[in-house]
């Protein structure tokens, strides 16, 4: 009897793991298909310009304050840690080069992605999930209005535009944060700092950073919209969709961010 119970619990353990894996595969497929459907609907982007601009305002302009604080203090922390250590070896002149490289290649897109996941991704998932559980999306289908064109495409386009834009803004402010620390703590002048920054700007770093932020924009909006569209079970489902979209977006930003870095700086390209 004991053996049978043990076998049953082992079976149900693997059964639940298998089910979760199958669900993840299905959901990944659903998200990718949703993105491509939205891509097809982008031919109607001009007709939906009002909604796109509204989403750009919500994701971009409203999150600027948070972006500013995170970018400025992120840059200050980064330059403080590296600068204090490098100053001991008389190498504080390297800080501007380090700052522009790190911000351009990685931190600009990463910080903006993290902020917009929390700020816009969560809002998108919650908004669409609420619409799903309150039958608004069914109502759209009943009116033969394509929910992908009406809801998903404007959100994806808005983040595809706003994430690279805000990423540039984050890089500028992050580097400025580094300038403040360099001036007040490391004894560098603003002129020297920005001269070195200017000398260290590489086109490849810029386009890789922008590519990353564009991909992050697609990831955040697609995952959030997909989670919103499959929500069920009322308020609990809305909470679940929001939570999963934020966690999944964070994980995908890290994983995809690594692979883009490996692709461009790991000797592949």
């Amino acid at each position: 009897m004991e053996n049978i119970a043990k076998e049953k619990s082992i079976y149900s353990f693997f059964h639940s793991i298998g089910q979760k894996m199958l669900y993840q595969i299905w959901f990944s497929g659903f998200t990718i298909v949703l993105f491509f459907k939205a891509l097809l609907q982008m031919r109607f982007a001009f007709a939906k310009r009002r909604e796109i601009v509204k989403q750009m305002y919500v994701s971009g302009i409203k999150s600027m304050l948070v972006c500013s604080i995170v970018a400025l203090f992120g840059g200050m922390i980064l330059s403080l840690h590296t600068g204090v250590e490098l100053k001991r070896w008389g190498q504080q002149d390297v800080v501007p080069t380090l700052m522009i490289n790190v911000m351009n290649k990685e931190m600009g897109a990463f910080l903006t992605g993290i902020i917009l996941t929390a700020f816009s991704g969560a809002a998108m998932a919650a908004e669409l999930a609420t619409m799903k559980v309150s039958e608004e999306i069914d109502a759209l289908e009943m009116m033969s209005i394509n929910p992908v064109r009406f809801l998903v495409m404007p959100r994806i386009v808005a983040l595809m535009i706003m994430l690279p834009t805000l990423s540039i803004y984050t890089v500028i402010l992050g580097v400025f944060g580094g300038a403040l620390i360099s001036y007040f703590q490391l004894g560098l002048t603003f002129e020297d700092y920005y001269h070195r920054v200017y000398e260290s700007i590489w086109l490849k770093d810029m386009y890789v950073g922008l590519l990353k932020s564009l991909v992050f924009g697609i990831i955040i909006s697609s995952i959030s919209c997909a989670n919103g569209l499959i929500a069920e079970n009322g308020a609990e489902g809305v909470g679940r969709a929001t939570r999963i979209s934020v966690v999944s977006s964070y994980l995908m930003i890290l994983i995809v961010g690594y692979f883009i870095t490996a692709l461009f700086y790991g000797g592949f390209l």
Binding site: E135, E136, D138, A139, L140, M142
Partner: peptide, 10 residues
Amino acid sequence: GFLFQSGALI
């Protein structure tokens, strides 16, 4: 036409 229980207004 479909009248949903909650109205389902946008």
